[in-house]
Nucleic acid binder design. Structure first.
Lengths: 229, 229
DNA sequence: ATAATAGTGTCTATGAGACAGTATAGC
DNA sequence: GCTATACTGTCTCATAGACACTATTAT
């Protein structure tokens, strides 16, 4: 008796045969920070083929006994030395030919870290890690390897959107911050200036005062705040 | 005589083990539709261990030579018989123990299909596919296998959010639809009634009239519209 | 005419945006 | 007092929400 195989059955046969050729899974990291009034991203300069001398996102392969989040934490630790920073999943990229060496599906994660935390770890790095302006990066996408240019664009867009309706920007300032400082972060991410009074009204319910003030500047000092709760 | 294993032997053991233990990648499908004034989801009743007799999301493994999107299209075709429906990536789930058989990372995709398109394909299905109310499903999460209950909640939340700021609800009605019909879709997804006049103002710039009207009802007929562009 | 649903006009409260004003430090 | 930046008050306009009203079909 001839039985028609379902597509799934046929697929599983093929799948079994190609077991040795299975898909690799990686996490790609988009570590953002703000430096010199610019949004910057942690990238590496590749010193191997493929895409030798191109820029690329740092990333690690996901181990069989490792969750995606564990892989992300490990990757962040390896590339920056910092721990316990904010991150969130962005998108999963699965085109067949996105890596010429082999089939790699990559789950991208965006991490935000205040420059101060990153600075503490400067010099610890082994491989060639750079902080580059996101605007400049996206102006010369031909220097970015793999599909990472597209991923960076996606992340920047997500960051812009999320700044508007979430508290994500607070991840880019120290625990205590001034409002002009925070406003600068918003403006840099959004790419346009904001009105002081409106900005303060908008975030007023998210913050609470401290009794500390800036000092040493030839103008009125500004008060330090912290995130509420 | 006890013989130490050669390096070659050890390597082969390790290689073999890793070969077998690599990560598998699947796509899980959340096919939503609206039936009888309820938001419904396509689920399957499992007839195998693990989670035999539990409900679960349909899904397929991603082939080595297949993109994520190709896998999704294949899965949707296999489970519903329909083609060319809207879908978008939701989230990627990567806990180590989420499937007791083996390490599977699953990329979840949400698909929306008007009931009319689904109806055309009813009876084509092989395995046991059900259309179940999302509310009822989430009230009895203990009957849902794997981490799929969590995934369904995530998807429902995303759908709710996205209805508010996108044109996603139009994917659940036929190409030509009446405004009361569309409003009903919005209300079902959001879970609360809307004011007619406000609803119409809000979507007025997304739609354009046709010259067709409903007929045969004992009340004023309603006009058919279509999505602009 | 009535019942039932389709469709519209408009008042109000809320919030975003724009701008002008006041406050306080170092020099 | 001057300069530079911090901080605040308030007007306007667009929009979301609430509600009352009119319109059109079959019976």
């Amino acid at each position: 008796m001839v039985k028609n195989k379902s597509e799934e059955e046929l697929f599983l046969e093929k799948y079994d045969k190609e077991k040795y050729e299975k898909i690799s899974v990686a996490v790609d990291l988009l570590v953002f920070t703000v430096e010199n009034d610019e949004l910057k991203l942690l990238v590496i300069k590749r010193n191997e083929m493929p895409y030798k001398d191109y820029l690329a996102l740092p990333g690690v392969f996901v181990g069989v006994d490792e969750s995606l989040e564990e892989a992300v934490k490990r990757g962040i630790r390896e590339e920056t030395g910092v721990e316990n920073i904010y991150f969130e999943q962005l998108y999963t990229w699965g085109e067949v030919d996105r890596d010429p060496r082999m089939r790699i599906i990559s789950v991208s994660y965006m991490a935000l870290v205040p420059l101060e935390s990153l600075r503490m770890r400067v010099g610890m790095r082994v491989s060639e890690v750079l902080l580059m302006s996101v605007d400049e990066l996206l102006e010369q996408k031909d220097k970015i390897g793999f599909d990472h240019g597209k991923i960076i664009e996606y992340a920047r867009e997500r960051l812009r959107n999320k700044v508007e309706y979430s508290k994500i920007a607070f991840e880019l300032v120290p625990k205590e911050f001034t409002l002009p400082q925070l406003q600068r972060i918003y403006e840099i991410i959004l790419g346009h200036p904001l009105y002081k009074a409106n900005f303060r009204k908008k975030i007023s319910e998210m913050i609470c005062q401290t009794d500390r003030y800036t000092s040493g500047n030839a103008h009125r000092p500004s008060q330090y705040y912290r995130l509420k709760e």
